[in-house]
Simulated scan of single mutants.
Amino acid sequence: MSLSISGKTAIVTGAAHGIGLAVARHFLDRGAQVMFADIDEDKLASELGDSAKSEGPARYFAGDLCQKLTVKNLLSATVDAFDRIDILVNTARGFAPCDPLDPSTAVLDDMLSKNMKSSLRISQMTAKRMIKQAEDEGREEGEIGSIVNVSSLASNITQPGLMAYSIACAAQDQSIRSLAVALAPHRIRVNGVSFGSVMSRSLQDALKENEDWREAICAGTPLGRIAPPSELAETVQYLASSGASFVTGQIIKIDGGRSLLDRVQVPAF
């Protein structure tokens, strides 16, 4: 079983911070060419340097990936830089609490846009590019691409104050399964990772406000700790590699066992 992604070209969204940055750097360290994509251009530039705009195996693209034109430009920039796209990893997300009795849909609309709609659109547009790429190369057999989308345990855990976020994560899970079936005939695999008790950017920010949550999270996680984003990156690599060539439509939980007995009454970041 080969887990190698060396020589592959990957787009990683949400790559300026937290999990996305860890995944993008992990892929780069293992020989992939990586387009780091995020709305935070200053952070991308500080992480990669200005030269990454035009040279090297690590490039960056800044823009609002909730916009269709921005996604189109991202794909064009990746092909211009590396000639192809083999892997897409969507880690770009948004998090916000809500009042479950508030009839306004503003928070729900925002959570759906940032956590499901944007990754769905990017996945669809990237898949079309992968299909055309294979046709142009005359590749009639074998896998032509892999997509990995990030979700959260919030999709399965009922916390009323996170209703909008939870609904968006549940929608993300279903979009992963639906895309997997739709793209299987085109030889593109689609999988997901659902995380909890991982030091995402949102969890890091939350712990600054309430450090007591750290102890509660560790106590409610059978493995007894909060994992660094690098541990999630290893699983993403597996799903993106040929080692997972017969795996599609699966959402792997990376949570230290937390979903087995969730006693943590804090957000499932």
Rank of each mutant, 00 (worst) to 15 (best):
S123L: 10
L223M: 08
Y238C: 04
P100S: 05
L203R: 07
D109N: 04
P267M: 11
M111P: 02
A16I: 07
R187H: 10
S6W: 13
K132R: 13
E41A: 09
Q204F: 14
K43I: 01
S178L: 13
L108Q: 02
S6K: 14
I157G: 11
T70D: 03
N191E: 01
G256D: 03
H186Y: 15
T105N: 14
V193N: 00
L153I: 13
A58P: 06
K128R: 10
G192D: 04
D29P: 10
S194T: 05
V107L: 00
F195R: 15
V148L: 04
V236R: 04
D262N: 03
Q124R: 10
F269S: 09
L21Y: 05
F269C: 06
P57W: 01
S123D: 03
P222M: 06
L65G: 03
S152N: 05
A37V: 02
V266W: 11
V266R: 02
D109L: 02
V148W: 00
A45K: 15
S259R: 02
G256T: 05
I254Q: 09
D99Q: 10
P160A: 12
A182H: 05
T78Y: 00
K43W: 13
C98F: 13
K253Y: 08
I85G: 05
Q33F: 07
K208H: 11
A154P: 01
V198D: 06
E211A: 15
A52E: 06
G257I: 07
F36K: 03
L239E: 01
H26A: 03
K68F: 13
N90Y: 04
S123R: 10
A227C: 06
L28I: 00
P103M: 10
G63L: 07
K117F: 15
I19E: 12
Q33N: 11
P222V: 12
S178R: 11
S175C: 14
C169M: 14
